[in-house]
Amino acid sequence: MSEVEDAAVTLLRLLRNEMRVAKDDGSLARVSVTSEWQNSEAFKGCDGQVTVGLAECTDQKVDLSGKTRRRTSFLRVNVWATEQAGANEAGRVIRDKIVEEVNRVVRQNRSKPHETLYDFLKGAASQMHRAYSGSSEVSPYHSSWETLSSEHIQQLWYSDDNRYEVRRSENGAFAALLFRFKLESRESVVKKLFLSFEGYGAAPAGNGVAVKVWNHEAGTWQHMQVGGAAGTDETLTLALTADLPSYIDSDGCVWLLARTLYASDGAAPALLFCDYVSCLVVVNGISYCDVVGYRALDRVDVKPFIYRTEITVKSWFIEKLGV
């Protein structure tokens, strides 16, 4: 039986990656998302805190044989805020905004909480992901790869035709990009990986781009997809559904390579253009969740007041037993 990710872990990751709380001045609030319980130290560097924990889990058979079962988990999502010196907004207002954002994220992702989309916009603040430029298909750990600057990384944030360009003029050199995606899930719970590259390549011998994924156990680039022959943006996707631990290295990273299909001839360069790149991870875990209620649990017997709302989220996971 494959490992199932804990429901609280799945929901915590969803909230951490998708929540965007805007203040009245347009800036983003700093919100800490952790497992239970509230940590007063978190308020020193954040505007608010969200904690996620399991309240109760039940197991029911769906058919008469009992081979198909449904695990129903009730999760506690607590939102915490307090008054802070020099803050432009009251703690109660911040708490209410975070509650609304939790509701939005859960409802919009209610049918896909087990899916996480990684790209360079969402990974910008934590610098979880990396991008490099090069001129050949060497190992992702080779020292010849050159790290892209934060300004160049910003060109990969959106699919908006603001492309990053790699140019290689040496004879026999390809224009290549290497992308590292740092996964938050344990490799044993990952069920599917979808790696997507949007862009195109051009060289003296013709247009085209090839994308591959690194198999760290075999030590080779595999699952090549080719496109971009028209010299315009094209999205190439590598779908991995088997032997996934071979593509997630010991640091929890997945490596994607994109290079021009043809090399430079020394007279004209090889050019690679990238508009957007992403990695979609599907884990073996809850496939549905929704908010079923919430209540206020403010602490006004302490100073400063602690504003707290407890949200109850219901989720389920359908499991089919082999025996």
Score class of each variant (00 low, 15 high):
residue 130 R to M: 10
residue 68 T to E: 14
residue 64 L to V: 12
residue 56 E to N: 06
residue 239 A to I: 12
residue 206 G to N: 08
residue 250 S to G: 06
residue 182 K to Q: 14
residue 147 T to G: 00
residue 199 G to K: 06
residue 155 Q to S: 00
residue 207 N to Y: 06
residue 51 T to K: 03
residue 115 E to L: 15
residue 208 G to E: 09
residue 195 L to P: 08
residue 311 I to Y: 04
residue 242 A to P: 01
residue 201 G to F: 08
residue 231 G to I: 14
residue 262 Y to M: 04
residue 306 I to Y: 02
residue 284 N to L: 01
residue 70 R to G: 06
residue 323 V to I: 07
residue 88 N to K: 14
residue 161 D to A: 13
residue 142 H to E: 09
residue 220 T to R: 10
residue 236 L to R: 08
residue 214 W to F: 11
residue 38 Q to N: 02
residue 77 V to P: 01
residue 233 D to C: 09
residue 168 R to S: 10
residue 76 R to T: 10
residue 230 A to E: 14
residue 126 S to A: 13
residue 16 R to Q: 13
residue 199 G to Y: 08
residue 15 L to D: 10
residue 267 A to M: 08
residue 56 E to L: 00
residue 37 W to D: 07
residue 274 C to H: 08
residue 221 W to N: 05
residue 52 V to E: 04
residue 258 A to H: 14
residue 30 R to E: 13
residue 59 D to Q: 11
residue 177 L to D: 04
residue 17 N to V: 10
residue 282 V to R: 10
residue 141 Y to K: 13
residue 268 A to M: 07
residue 210 A to D: 15
residue 52 V to N: 06
residue 3 E to R: 14
residue 150 S to R: 12
residue 244 L to G: 11
residue 250 S to F: 03
residue 158 Y to C: 10
residue 194 F to G: 04
residue 128 M to L: 04
residue 115 E to I: 14
residue 311 I to E: 04
residue 156 L to P: 02
residue 47 D to A: 08
residue 88 N to E: 14
residue 263 A to E: 12
residue 228 G to A: 05
residue 202 A to E: 14
residue 218 A to P: 01
residue 128 M to P: 02
residue 127 Q to R: 12
residue 135 S to K: 09
residue 196 S to W: 02
residue 74 F to C: 01
residue 83 E to N: 15
residue 79 V to L: 03
residue 241 T to H: 05
residue 288 Y to D: 03
residue 30 R to Y: 09
residue 76 R to G: 03
residue 31 V to P: 09
residue 10 T to E: 03
residue 99 V to C: 10
residue 19 M to D: 11
residue 8 A to V: 05
residue 279 C to D: 09
residue 37 W to M: 05
residue 73 S to M: 09
residue 64 L to N: 08
residue 190 V to N: 02
residue 100 E to D: 12
residue 102 V to L: 09
residue 118 Y to T: 08
residue 320 K to T: 15
residue 59 D to Y: 11
residue 23 K to I: 11
residue 207 N to P: 01
residue 321 L to P: 02
residue 74 F to M: 03
residue 43 F to N: 06
residue 195 L to N: 06
residue 105 V to F: 08
residue 117 L to W: 01
residue 158 Y to N: 13
residue 157 W to N: 11
residue 111 S to C: 05
residue 268 A to I: 03
residue 137 E to I: 11
residue 228 G to R: 08
residue 253 C to S: 13
residue 258 A to S: 15
